[in-house]
Design a protein around this nucleic acid. Structure first.
Lengths: 373, 373
DNA sequence: CTGAAAGCGCTTACAG
DNA sequence: CTGAAAGCGCTTACAG
């Protein structure tokens, strides 16, 4: 008793914020029960138990409800989680690329949160710096604080795929390697690339430069394959030209700048097919600096349909991956695993959709010369 | 026993995903202890207790560590939380505006996650649809699952400010009303607006139209005040013109389109000062559609310096609010409340910074006529 | 209709 | 150096 008081005083001295030190203890079921003159179990039955609730007499029931309201009783999440062995929380793990989560992640987050709301689930965001270095941390997250984990675009080398703990289900979006026991959610990027490049060809473009993603990634390969197939289908296979950029605005800027440096005085492609929207934006910057107009001098196509595609000027023609639906589906798979694919291939593929906006028009009448930067 | 087996079979029948039904139970301290032939407390002392760890003999210690590794023991977060009465998790509550979290939120999230990482805290994201309708839900989040809550741009009417539960500390960013007992983190938007409008005046602009934020919001008032002060300081007070837009791209689009409709044939302002980056993007779209060039025909200024300002074409001159630092500070305040301001005014104000990019240049030599849309 | 008991997994005093 | 006891707040059988 004396210690309690002394401890309290000590706290007051150390913590300037009264709000903190005088922290009221939340009421428990026992408190409510005591106030009513009934056991904690009865309070539990009325306040938290769903079926068993009926077995309490109407009068007691009402008094318990009143007292709970008066005491502002809230069931303690930790105690509940310990008892039920589930937290009603899902984790969302992503790598912070160059120090920040990007628009791609934001789209997925929106979908995940929407679905989580429907299932009364919380979402905890975990950030990693590097998939392979931090893969071990994934298991640490599975310590009862989450009931399932969504991996966003994981790059986990084949040798490390034993990282999945036995008791927490994982789902991945855009995984770069199959992870045993983990369903992966994809969109049909190859078909999407085919569609959007075909759109350019349909407009009359015959010289389309592809700025591809980071080497070795699945998304990069699939987009490149769709690009090739579209050109081949139009008997333009030989015109395929591809330079490696990456997935960031900066990488797009650098790649196009380098290419223009090498090709100054030559003819500009009539269109660019970029690995994603961010790369397209980097290209638009470089083109603007060079005094070239989009789409008059050159058409440009992105990929993903993130926020950035809608807010650029001109707005970007792009390939929509249904990132929100994909994020929502990840949540559903974790909450209702019976909705998972019944087949062996642990893969769910969403269709994509070309979104035509202002950045693509017919090619210019006369070839444009690549200016010196 | 028989029921167990029958239940297990039942599960297998219902759940197609073996992974789910065969869920291995994670090892507990008791399991580790039993395997070593020692009590759970000893295991606790070695594996989780920091100081008390020394009191175990070196040999037992090693055997406990080995056995824990073999069993892949992880301390259970829920049990720990129940015992310690803290979850090592902070909440981040925001309103999903028009169905989506935006770039403004993403900046804050980045800052919050960065700081949370430093303090070994998890971040759980809560979304609301409307501050006033959902204010009651805030208290529900404070059920032991979080140790503190960060409110992003709350709009909580004065009459409802008793929503803060006694046992969970809150911090707000850009609160629109003072909430008793809640420290608010702001940036000096008035000074920022003054700075960025003065930049325009310095370039020679004399006719600057302000597209302001939603009526009644603090941010709107402060930006408007800074705008007015800058004009007045340059003896341009009488030229002040202001139309209400909002904080979304669409609102910017609509507001400028309406204005141009009414003023077709008149002279175009030489510059627009927009309530935020999103509004500026909406204006850029409308201007582009009208065949007007930014910045040649008209300069344009945003506010916030979100992703969108860096990815628009031309890139936006804008006023940077240090949203990441502000988010990081919110985390620090909750984790280390002793860093809170000692003064009465429960307010922390960050400085802002004008970021000059390509969207602002000197006004055009001749007045531009507002085209018919 | 209601309560005493036991347990979820961990930790913090307290005994030995 | 080590363990038995009690408790965090809730829930699930089980008795009455």
């Amino acid at each position: 008793m004396l210690e309690d008081i002394s401890a309290a005083l000590h706290q007051v001295a150390e913590m300037p914020r009264a709000r903190k030190s005088l922290k009221a203890k939340p009421a428990t079921l026992a408190d409510v029960g005591r106030a009513v003159g009934v056991s904690a179990m009865s309070a539990s039955a009325v306040l938290n138990g769903s079926r068993t609730s009926t077995r309490i007499s109407p009068e007691t029931r009402i008094r318990i409800l009143e007292e709970a309201a008066r005491l502002r009783y809230r069931p303690n999440a930790a105690a509940r989680a310990l008892n039920r062995r589930q937290m009603s929380t899902l984790g969302l793990a992503a790598v912070v690329d160059s120090g920040e989560l990007n628009a791609y992640f934001l789209e997925i987050l929106n979908g995940v949160l929407e679905a989580a709301g429907r299932f009364n689930q919380n979402i905890t965001v975990f950030t990693l710096h590097d998939w392979n270095l931090d893969a071990g941390r994934l298991a640490d997250f599975c310590d009862g604080r989450i009931d399932g984990l969504i991996l966003v675009a994981p790059v986990i080398s084949e040798t490390k795929t034993d990282i999945v703990p036995a008791h927490t289900p994982f789902v991945s979006l855009h995984s770069n390697n199959p992870i045993p026991g983990v369903i992966d959610i994809e969109s049909d990027e190859e078909a999407g690339a085919f569609e959007v490049v075909s759109h350019l060809i349909g407009l009359g473009h015959r010289d389309i430069l592809h700025l591809s993603g980071p080497e070795g990634m699945q998304g990069t390969k699939r987009r490149l394959a769709g690009y090739q197939r579209a050109l081949t289908a139009a008997r333009l296979g030989k015109t395929a030209k591809n330079i490696e950029a990456g997935f960031s605005t900066e990488s797009g800027r650098n790649a196009l700048r380098a290419w223009m440096g090498k090709n100054a005085g030559g003819t500009l492609p009539t269109a660019l097919f970029c690995a994603n929207d961010a790369v397209a934006l980097g290209c638009m910057e470089v083109l603007a600096q060079a005094g070239l107009r989009v789409p008059d001098d050159i058409s440009i196509v992105g990929f993903d349909d993130t926020l950035a595609a809608r807010t650029s000027t001109p707005q970007l023609t792009t390939l929509r991956q249904p990132l929100r639906q994909m994020g929502a589906r990840a949540v559903e798979l974790l909450i209702k695993p019976e909705t998972a694919p019944q087949t062996k291939g642990e893969l769910i593929v969403f269709p994509t959709q070309a979104i035509v906006r202002a950045s693509t028009v017919r090619p210019p009448a006369k070839p444009v010369i690549v200016p010196r930067l």
